[in-house]
Amino acid sequence: MNTPSNLKYTQSDEWFDPATGAVGITDYAQGQLSDIVFVEILVDEGEEVTVGKAIASVESVKASSEIYAPAAGKVSAVNKDLSNAPESINTDPYGAAWMIKIEGGTTSDAMDAAAYEKYCEGRTH
């Protein structure tokens, strides 16, 4: 399981990059969902989001999941290419598969990489 140390993580498996404001889902989450075939970003550029607001919806062959904002702030960018390449969530969850950027985003109770890894180990799916 890949868990970059520069990112923050949520219990609902989103990652947040405090340096760039980028948001996506974790390697662990993409593995649980398996082959992702559809992603829809549910917010627009310029929109204000609060922590926990649904920002995207992903569908795999067998499951569907909503992605929630890990931080509050203004949406400064939306990854418009992602809907044409939803499989990049499986192959590059921390890179090409960023979903939105939250400008000046603040997180409340996000975990660091070590805490998130421990959290995932403790889960039985």
Binding site: F38, E59, S60, V61, K62, A63, S64, E66
Partner: peptide, 13 residues
């Protein structure tokens, strides 16, 4: 195919 759109998986969404 694309069954994850449907009610048995997506339920109220």
């Amino acid at each position: 195919t694309l069954t994850a759109r449907e009610q048995h998986i997506k339920r109220e969404r």
